[in-house]
Design a protein around this nucleic acid. Structure first.
Length: 848
RNA sequence: GGGCCUAUAGCUCAGUUGGUUAGAGCACUGCCCUUACAAGGCAGGUGUCGGGGGUUCGAGUCCCUCUGGGCCCACCA
């Protein structure tokens, strides 16, 4: 074994084993990635990391996109920026509630009293145990804390260079203060308002949902053709998929130009069964091609009903309650004896069973014409719900988002243009969404685990709430829970009493909190110094499907509160696809757990795969790429060991050999390319550039200098190679550091002090004095490849001798060969070289 | 119905403002124990660049059109 220089500490048998544990722990305990608050504003790079939803397991997609952000963070840090890279846990909202329900088999019943020291029992039975709101929230907090520990461990194993001292939870006290404060400011500026209005309603969760949370699902349905009686006792026939809404019918509508129905406009007809008189109206949204060309308007079957109801100022006749069932009491507008007598049959039924029942009743009465025709059609669902949405009229809180205000919309579209998008074409999705908004942002939710709306209302002399008299807290008292805190000027005994007050029972939409993630992480109004350093932030990384929610709502909040964007740049990451090109499903994601992946291939290898996924591009899940990444990491270990063992050093003034200078000239180009790519967020291009050089470096350059470095050409020539090797290794290890943080930290520790991740990103200037003529190495490599090929074709060992090498080339090429001739002879076992000048390059290898 | 992305080797993908004979990795095959690395190295074949039309001296690249795939939105009687 060659003697090692004393300062080097290269292991006998380098290995990737346990590097995650060794370095990951050290980075955390030594606070390697701590944000330096003392850095000047322009030297700060702040990242608005997506807070992952803590509602179960992380999947491969998280590993993918969080790695992308980490690559940028590490590049910026090495480039001299003080990087503010916090993380939050999104433990606020429905997913947590639902997970607690399933995990512990409980459900929240706010009417129950709190049980101290309640211990949930896991039961297999279908029935859920009812517990108080406070007990429920405690279970939410317990479970999220457990999940957050697992998340933290995974992210540390993955090597995310997060500053863990700035971790927040979207339900923690600081986040509640920020979101309540922001809401109160919205309210002061009249950007928040309450309204009694038809609202999309999930009957399972019993909560309102926002436009952004809708999704369509294909569901079976059926056309029912139903006749309404005209004043002259003849009939008009409509078609509907929702016959159960017949008692909620408030009008019929047809297109104004529809000759078939023109005579009916302005007249009234009677609903079958219930015999309620309703007008026939004309509206351009009615489609003559659909059904019979005339439709019934109900309160409310769909969003078009809401439009018609509003424009014609029609009465509100809701029959579906908040539980999704038909109301128990017969509604007042049903006055006919037949209607009143059949009501008890449908009262309390779900929409689904009422549909069947009414269809049968219509059949019996002869009002159902022809057969029921089954179809499949898209139905609106809450994206987290299992049952179709209903539309019910409720009082809710809204924040203006440009959906009803052209001036605001124009401002927000302007913000979208001002933002730097990576990739750029993603901005179109933002524009389409903003241009298509048709209402303000509904933020109140009838849930338990979330940030409460910080509001109380006055109760009148009869004990009824007067919603026009909103009582707000002082900002200094935040956060508050209006269910347990008392507004100033009142005492607890006045709660729910006539002339007293009532707390708003609702919580805010999860996006109402998430939209403030930059302000929460930057500790807005809590740490002025920090906030001024990091806000507006530099980067928001996120995926494309939440441009309309998270990105847009964040822009809305920052625009109104700070009159600025929340960040200058947004980087959109793609999705992980199955090998069959479909979006990777949750179930499959759970089979391949991220931790297993990291353990099997190594974190650096998994990061390599992620880094090969370009910004914004969907990428196939591919363990093959991880194997390549692992091979690269091992190669870095071995090449570093080799170089250091041979005596790589920093005596750069010894670099005189033309081949060494040529290699460094190539490396200069790599540094320039990688830096340029990284600064435009194209980490993939940066990695490719470095990797390509590195393999050529090991395959050709290291082979060429082997004998020289052992002293075959004398001391000076050996020293030139050792110094060039030292410089190249230092540069290469740093270039790889953002991608493969563990293996680079390991090899760096063999011969340098301090963490490589805090060392400067390589600059071309480091190399300029020693770099010259990149073509020389390329030409020598080309000849070496021909020599190897000849040996391969002859099925000989690479150690076989070459008796004669005949090269026809131009004089530049010839000079290149001559200046590296000794190295070429040694690496190729060449005994003799004959050069003839000519235009056509030709290389002829004669073996012994 | 509107918008965006995408189509290149068996697979995964590069291909810059149009410019020699379109590249890489994987996979596959063969060879080599070469004193960093056999979990290695070296070498090798592979293409109607989705179809059609146009602009140009020249098109994988620009324009038009058709087709396939993906995503977002709208429609929901």
């Amino acid at each position: 074994m060659t003697q090692l220089p004393p300062q080097h500490n290269v292991p006998e048998k380098p290995s990737l084993a346990n590097l995650e544990d060794k370095w990951g722990k050290k980075w955390v305990t030594e606070k390697t990635f701590a944000f330096d608050k003392s850095a000047p504003r322009e030297a700060v790079y702040a990242i608005d990391t997506p807070p992952p939803t803590v509602s179960g397991a992380l999947h491969v997609g998280h590993v993918f996109s969080y790695t992308h952000t980490d690559l940028i963070a590490r590049f910026q840090r090495m480039s001299g920026k003080s990087v503010f890279y916090p993380i939050g846990w999104d433990d606020n909202g429905l997913p947590t509630e639902r997970r607690v329900q399933n995990y512990f088999g409980v459900r929240c019943d706010p009417s129950l009293a709190y049980q101290a020291n309640y211990q949930p029992e896991k039961s297999d039975s279908e029935t859920q145990v009812a517990i108080s709101r406070k007990n429920f929230v405690e279970l939410c907090e317990y479970l999220t804390t457990e999940d957050e520990k697992a998340f933290e461990e995974l992210f540390q194993t993955l090597g995310l260079s997060i500053d863990w001292d700035y971790t927040y939870q979207t339900i923690d006290e600081k986040a509640r203060v920020v979101s309540q404060r922001a809401f109160l400011r919205n309210l002061e500026r009249q950007e928040a308002y309450q309204a009694e209005a038809p609202t999309l309603w999930d009957v399972t969760f019993k909560t309102a949902v926002a436009q952004a949370e809708l999704e369509d699902r294909e569901r079976p349905g059926a056309y029912h053709r139903i006749r309404f009686k005209k004043p002259d006792n003849s009939f008009v026939e409509i078609e509907t998929t929702r016959p159960e809404l017949l008692p909620a019918c408030v009008a019929l509508v047809a297109h104004p130009d529809d000759e078939r129905y023109k005579p009916l406009f302005g007249t009234t007809v009677k609903t079958p069964l219930f015999e309620v008189e309703v007008p026939v109206v004309a509206h351009s949204l009615a489609d003559p091609e659909k059904g019979s060309g005339i439709a019934m308007i109900c309160t409310f079957g769909d969003l078009t009903d809401v439009t018609w109801w509003r424009e014609f100022n029609l009465p509100t006749r809701p029959i579906i309650g908040w539980d999704g069932r038909i109301t128990k009491e017969c509604p007042s507008w049903i006055e006919s004896a037949s209607g009143i007598s059949l009501w008890p049959e449908i009262a309390g039924k779900t929409a689904h069973s009422a549909k069947e029942l009414i269809a049968n009743l219509l059949k019996d009465s002869g009002d159902l014409i022809g057969e029921i025709r089954p179809i499949t059609h898209p139905v609106k669902f809450f994206e987290k719900g299992d049952k179709p949405l209903e539309i019910v009229t409720t009082r809710q809180w809204y924040i203006k988002n440009g959906g009803r205000d052209q001036a605001l919309r124009k401002d927000l579209l302007g913000r979208g243009t001002e933002l730097n998008w990576h990739p750029d074409y993603m901005k179109v999705r933002y524009q389409n969404w903003v241009e298509g908004l048709n209402g303000d942002w509904l933020i109140s939710r009838q849930r338990f685990f979330g940030v409460p709306l910080p509001l109380w209302y006055r109760l009148d002399a009869n004990g009824n709430p007067d919603y026009s008299q909103v009582i707000t807290p002082n900002e200094a008292d935040l956060p508050i829970d209006p269910q347990s805190d008392v507004p100033s000027g009142f005492i607890e005994e006045q709660r729910n009493q006539p002339n007293g007050f009532i707390g708003d029972p609702d919580v805010m939409d999860t996006w109402a909190t998430s939209s403030l993630s930059p302000q929460i992480a930057a500790r807005w109004e809590l740490d002025k110094e920090l906030f001024e350093k990091v806000f507006p932030m530099n980067l928001r990384p996120q995926s494309h499907e939440i441009i309309r929610t998270w990105l847009f709502s964040s822009v809305v909040r920052a625009n109104s509160e700070h009159n600025s964007l929340p960040w200058t740049d947004v980087a959109i990451s793609g999705w992980i696809l199955d090998p069959d090109r479909k979006k990777m499903s949750k179930s499959k994601g759970n089979v391949i757990t991220p931790m297993n992946l990291l353990q099997e291939y190594g974190s650096d290898a998994v990061r390599y795969w992620a880094a090969m996924g370009r910004p914004g591009t969907d990428t196939a899940f591919d363990t093959g790429q991880m194997k390549i990444g692992r091979r690269l990491a091992i190669k870095i270990l071995n090449a570093s060991k080799f170089g250091l063992t041979l005596g790589a050093n920093s005596n750069f003034e010894n670099i005189t050999n033309p081949l060494d200078k040529s290699m460094l000239a190539q490396l200069t180009q790599v540094v320039e390319n990688a830096t340029k790519a990284f600064s435009t967020y194209d980490y993939t291009k940066a990695l490719e550039s470095v990797e390509t050089f590195f393999w050529n470096f090991t395959d050709d350059y290291l082979e060429l200098i082997k004998e020289r470095i052992y002293g075959a050409q004398g001391e000076a020539e050996a020293e030139s190679a050792k110094a060039a090797l030292g410089l190249a290794l230092s540069i290469l290890q740093r270039l790889f550091a953002p991608f493969l943080p563990f293996v680079t930290e390991e090899v760096w520790s063999w011969w340098q002090t301090g963490s490589i991740h805090k060392k400067p990103w390589p600059k071309a200037e480091e190399l300029h004095a020693y770099a010259e003529n990149p073509e020389l190495l390329a030409d020598v490599s080309a000849v070496l490849t021909e020599v190897r090929k000849a040996k391969t074709v002859a099925q000989l060992s690479m150690r076989a001798d070459v008796s004669q090498l005949v090269v026809i080339c131009n004089d530049v090429f010839a000079n290149h060969l001559k200046s590296a001739q000794k190295d070429l002879f040694a690496a190729g076992r060449v005994q003799n070289l004959e050069i003839t000048l000519g235009d056509e390059l030709s290389i002829k290898v004669s073996l012994v």
